[in-house]
Design a protein around this nucleic acid. Sequence first.
DNA 1: CTGAAAGCGCTTACAG
DNA 2: CTGAAAGCGCTTACAG
Lengths: 324, 324
Amino acid sequence: MITINDVAKLSGVTTATVSRVLNGGKNVKKETMEKVLDAIKKLNYKPNKIARNLAKGRFTESTIGVILTVAIYPFFYNILKGIYRGLSEQNYNILIFNIGKNRKEVFEHIVKENLSGVLIVATGISEEEKMLFQIHNMKFVYLDFFEENENSIFIDNYLGGNLAANYFISKNINKIALVGEDRKTQQQENRFLGFKDVLSKNGINIKTERHISFMENMPYSVHGKESYKITKELIENTDIEGIFYYCDELAYGGLKAKKELKSSIFIIGYDDLPSSRYFKLTTIRQPAYLIGYYGARNILNVIKTSNMVPIKKCISPKLVVRKT
Amino acid sequence: MITINDVAKLSGVTTATVSRVLNGGKNVKKETMEKVLDAIKKLNYKPNKIARNLAKGRFTESTIGVILTVAIYPFFYNILKGIYRGLSEQNYNILIFNIGKNRKEVFEHIVKENLSGVLIVATGISEEEKMLFQIHNMKFVYLDFFEENENSIFIDNYLGGNLAANYFISKNINKIALVGEDRKTQQQENRFLGFKDVLSKNGINIKTERHISFMENMPYSVHGKESYKITKELIENTDIEGIFYYCDELAYGGLKAKKELKSSIFIIGYDDLPSSRYFKLTTIRQPAYLIGYYGARNILNVIKTSNMVPIKKCISPKLVVRKT
DNA sequence: CTGAAAGCGCTTACAG
DNA sequence: CTGAAAGCGCTTACAG
């Protein structure tokens, strides 16, 4: 590594002078300046920001980390947008981490960064990871994820499930299927539980439940195609009247099957992504943007107040009735 | 600021021991550890990452800055997605900066960050800003922006304009209006120039040109509403047969006016946002995701090779004919 | 298991 | 205009 010492030696001055040049060249003779600049170029010297910031006593943190798993889906994008808005307002920057692969390494990297706090999107972290954060006094807020005793801004997925079930009941639909992913996420568990609970209260049992195998490294649309196949099969081989999908993108696949087979099956999604409006999909709306925005405001709050009582913010989803 | 010295004093040990505790507590007596941990809690001590990184010789940069103006529009979001993908592949993180307000301050902040390089989205930077980057040996690549002698990944907006004009000509449409923004951006200038050039070659002159006043702090949909009004007025008061809009979101407003007035006017947008498919909007597609992805790969390249020849990558837009 | 001391790469008041 | 030296907050080989 080329340091200020190397530059000083090559240009025949002390590091003090090199430093002066680096800082704008006030009080430096023109010729000296040129010599130094020359040496910098020759050595392709790049000042070390870390050292400089330490020397200058610049310890202000104005960056919030955002921890994402795998890809940015449209839903997460809206969360991100909200975060961006909330953080920009307070002149904070966003540092995005992807913990999809090398999770452990990335976590160790995160605590080395000069961060004010961290926003964790749609996933929980292990006790070990929490410990790591604690040692480094790194505050965090969960987004779209609930955990007792932690700061979390989340959506009432159970209620979302209720809403979907009530919609079917209002339409007098009894033969119902569920289509989701095969990985157990908090979001899906609660949605489906809320859905089933309302149904059983009304004496209805789910006819069948299908789970698409989740593929981490694929664009999510691949799952939509799986959903299309499954729906087709369901329509052809069963007397199902309605399907509740884990999310809109899965429902889109269902819509395609429905159309192709000219079926009159009822379909309900979850998320209310932008496209759902144009597909006229009946769905449960989650205000993703708000989650992000609240998240941004709250992490800033947590940092400032070093609050002991965890922040809990539960957002209610809404039924959006369209034509499916 | 509370430092390791304060903790050492309060717990009656030296900084060496505190440091050991901070680093996992290997070779520290249990009681000592507890004393230190106690002091840390009492003082709410937060280790200084800057100092630690300097001491540990951790100078690896694995972060790329992304400079955005104002808000994240759907188009920029797709660029971001591409960047995210390309950077994640190489285990780099993204640090997002918003230069919408306090531009100068933010730039000064950027060069203080420990960044490997910077991606500048859809905007040029001034000579002064370039100088700043040069002094700090900060490499950058323009995305969706062209400048001679700089690294840039851009879209051929002139060609995009050509494509739109040719479409109108193929439909035998002669009475044409242009709807754009009132700020002069490179993107709009080139699009409209390309459009007009083809028309004049065919002996056609633009009938009228309208410019919506750009509002920085508003969601872009506000501009769509303006566009709706303007289009309505154009349909009602002129014999225009076709309108070319600066971007899809403006075209959506036009679509609404067209529908309301049951007009048969031809409408063509620019971008091909996801919703455009459902609106059946004829438009010029810009592969935003690709720009981001190439951008990520290229900035990484620029850093590694300290290339002298600027990287230029021109991406061609495509006409997407739908029903409008 | 713990401390004294040197060092990470840079900056800056002080003296000349 | 320039240098010698102390210092930023932390880590770590060395010695005990």
